[in-house]
Deep mutational scan, measured.
Amino acid sequence: LQLFIKTLTGKTFTVEMEPSDTIENLKAKIQDKEGIPPDQQRLIFAGKQLEDGRTLSDYNIQKESTLHLVL
C-alpha cells in the first residue's frame, strides 16, 4: 500500500509498504529514501505516536493514508 509521509517543513514523499510491515520497517524505508536515522523519527497517525513493534494494520493504516514525520 502506498503511504504519504508529510514532514513539518511541508515536504511530502511516498513509500510503498505492506499492511503486515512494522513501524520499524517503515522507519527503515524512510531512512533509505530520506537518510533520516530511525531513532530520530517520530511518526504520528490520527493523533497517535506509532510504536516500532506494531504493524501498520494494528493502527488501521490504509492505502494512501498520510503519516506525519516529526524529527
Rank of each mutant, 00 (worst) to 15 (best):
V70M: 12
G10R: 01
K11A: 10
I23T: 04
Q31W: 09
E34W: 05
P37A: 13
E64H: 14
T7V: 12
G35F: 06
L26Y: 00
K63Y: 06
D52E: 15
L43I: 12
T55S: 08
S65K: 03
G10F: 07
R42D: 11
N60S: 13
T66E: 07
Y59M: 04
G47Q: 06
Q2Y: 12
F45N: 02
I61V: 09
N60A: 13
K33G: 11
G35V: 02
K27S: 01
Q2N: 11
L43C: 01
T55V: 08
K33F: 08
L26P: 00
N60E: 08
R54T: 15
I30Q: 00
T12Q: 13
M17P: 02
Q31M: 07
Q31Y: 13
F45G: 02
P38H: 13
R54S: 15
M17G: 08
H68S: 14
Q41H: 11
V15I: 11
T14K: 07
Q62N: 09
S20W: 05
I5F: 03
S20G: 06
A46G: 08
T9G: 12
M17K: 01
F13Q: 02
E18F: 10
G53A: 05
I5M: 02
F13A: 02
L69R: 00
Q40P: 02
E16A: 14
G35P: 02
K11G: 12
L56G: 02
Q40I: 09
F13D: 01
F4Q: 09
E18K: 08
E18T: 11
L8I: 14
P19L: 07
L69K: 00
K27F: 02
L69N: 01
Q2D: 05
Y59P: 00
T7M: 11
D52V: 06
L71K: 09
Q40N: 12
T14L: 11
H68D: 15
I61E: 03
I44C: 03
E51I: 04
R42F: 07
K33V: 12
M17T: 12
I61W: 03
G53Y: 08
Q41L: 08
A28D: 12
Q41F: 11
F45P: 00
K48Q: 15
K11V: 13
I44L: 11
V70N: 14
L71H: 14
L8A: 15
E18Q: 10
T22Y: 06
A46R: 06
L56I: 11
D39W: 07
G35E: 06
Y59D: 01
E51R: 05
D21Y: 03
G53T: 07
Q41D: 01
L26A: 02
D32G: 13
I23Y: 02
L71W: 07
K27G: 01
N25W: 11
E64V: 06
K6F: 10
R54D: 14
K27Y: 02
D52R: 04
L69M: 12
I5S: 00
Q49C: 04
Q62R: 08
E18W: 12
V70D: 10
I23P: 02
T66I: 10
D32S: 14
T7R: 06
P37G: 06
K11L: 13
D58H: 09
A28G: 12
A46K: 07
F4A: 07
K6M: 15
T9V: 11
T9M: 15
L71D: 13
T12R: 06
D52G: 07
K11F: 11
Q41M: 14
L43Y: 07
K63H: 14
F45Y: 11
T55C: 03
E16F: 09
A28T: 11
K6S: 14
Q40S: 10
P37V: 13
K29S: 05
G53V: 08
E16D: 07
K33S: 13
E51K: 07
D52P: 06
L71V: 09
L67T: 03
K11D: 12
K33H: 14
L1A: 04
I23E: 00
L67N: 02
I61M: 07
A46C: 04
T12F: 08
E34F: 08
E24K: 06
P19C: 04
T9Q: 13
L69I: 08
L3V: 06
E24P: 03
L3D: 00
I5V: 14
D58N: 07
S20K: 14
Q40T: 15
S20A: 09
T55Q: 08
L56T: 01
I44A: 07
G53P: 11
E51C: 03
T7S: 15
S65W: 07
K6C: 03
D52M: 08
K33W: 14
E34C: 03
F13L: 14
I44F: 10
L69C: 02
P19N: 06
K48Y: 12
R42W: 15
S65D: 13
K11T: 14
Q62E: 14
F4H: 15
Q49T: 12
T55G: 04
A46V: 15
T14R: 12
G35H: 11
F13M: 15
L8V: 13
G53D: 11
L26W: 00
E16T: 15
I5T: 00
K11P: 14
R54N: 09
R54Q: 07
E18G: 11
K63C: 03
K33P: 01
E24H: 05
Q41S: 04
R42G: 14
K63W: 07
T22Q: 06
A28L: 14
N25M: 04
A28C: 04
T22A: 05
L69G: 01
E24T: 12
E34L: 15
Q49W: 05
T14P: 08
H68N: 07
F13E: 01
K29R: 15
R54V: 05
D39M: 10
G10S: 03
L69T: 01
Q62L: 15
F4M: 06
T22C: 03
A46L: 11
N25P: 02
T7K: 06
I23C: 02
T12K: 04
M17S: 06
E51H: 15
R54P: 07
S57Y: 10
Y59N: 03
E51G: 05
G47P: 01
I44N: 11
Q41G: 03
Q2A: 09
T9P: 09
E51N: 06
K6V: 11
G35Q: 10
